[in-house]
């Protein structure tokens, strides 16, 4: 059977709002996987809870819709068990920066070889528009008619402060740009963080196409962390593309001394193990 974008389509009903950024993100993800010649059964996707998570049935592959905030550690556990699978964690700004922010931080530090897609629509949309840490300060949201009090988190600034090996930023209105950075992220050997600015016409209409089109500037792949920091701190422009990549730092698994020279994956190793040597040391 020919591998094309239809290979990844399912017949699940559409449950997103008209104009939702998720449509393009899904198209881009499917296209990236097709271009990398991955068939659905070699891809494992760990979905968080939220509008992005509701995409779990709208793309083929081995998919898990798990707990809110926990898409990353689940994906890491799955990846460690079988590195032959391409593992992607798909998560929103709420799950990633609130409930599960520790997993993002330690994931970058540990540099597991997985790809994380952060759908940043600047609010908790599935629960009808609550504040997240990427919601603009002062913006009036659910339950806060006088606007958001707290300061924001700049995802790029946070990620780059942790000595990452891959950070890219894309925009749901530019699916071709997304295909490119998702492909780069999957190919990268390490923890690939991809922030996707996602249109949310229902709860965040201010950040619309006109807003993004005016601000976005595409860049070439950058390997200079200081330059990358300047990109993410720029208040006037939003830079998209591979903001930072470091190929020198090795990914977690390849650093495990006791897995060196072992060719098999953990999934192939579940069999009886003779403990008599270990037991003899307990005499």
């Amino acid at each position: 059977m020919k591998l094309d974008i239809n290979s990844y389509n399912t017949d699940a009903p559409i449950t997103w709002c008209p104009g939702c950024g998720n449509f393009n993100i899904h198209i881009a993800l499917k296209q990236a996987l097709v271009e990398l010649k991955k068939i659905p059964s070699e891809v494992m996707m760990s979905f968080d809870i939220g509008c992005n998570g509701n995409g779990g049935d709208k793309i083929d592959g081995f998919r898990v819709k798990g707990l809110h905030g926990r898409a990353i550690p689940f994906a890491v556990g799955a990846h460690i068990a079988n590195r032959n699978m391409t593992v992607i964690a798909d998560i929103g700004d709420g799950g990633c920066l609130h409930e599960g922010i520790d997993h993002l931080i330690h994931g970058i530090r540990s540099n597991y070889n997985i790809t994380v897609l952060i759908h940043n629509n600047q609010n908790f949309a599935l629960t009808t528009g609550q504040i997240t840490s990427t919601t603009q300060r002062g913006k009036r949201m659910y339950g806060f008619p006088n606007g958001k009090t707290e300061d924001d988190i700049n995802i790029g600034e946070l990620v780059l402060s942790l000595n990452p090996t891959f950070y890219a930023k894309g925009y749901s209105g530019d699916p071709q740009g997304l295909v490119d950075i998702i492909k780069e992220g999957i190919k990268h050997k390490g923890f690939s963080v991809i922030e996707i600015m996602q249109i949310c016409p229902t709860y965040n209409p201010e950040s619309n196409m006109a807003f993004f089109n005016e601000k976005i500037k595409k860049i070439e792949k950058c390997t200079d962390i200081n330059k990358a920091r300047r990109y993410v701190l720029d208040k006037e422009r939003i830079y998209t593309g591979v903001i930072y990549q470091n190929k020198k730092r090795r990914e977690y698994y390849s650093l495990l001394k006791n897995r060196k020279n072992r060719k098999s994956e953990l999934v192939d190793e579940v069999k009886g193990y003779n403990i008599s040597n270990i037991l003899s040391k307990l005499e």
């Binding site: 760990s46 926990r70 550690p73 689940f74 556990g77 799955a78 068990a81």
Partner: peptide
Amino acid sequence: IVKQAESEITAVQFAMGSMYMGT
């Protein structure tokens, strides 16, 4: 593979993910 996780939530999610994948 012996891994000290950043929290108990992480540890149990790692375990769940690995068991799901088939080890």
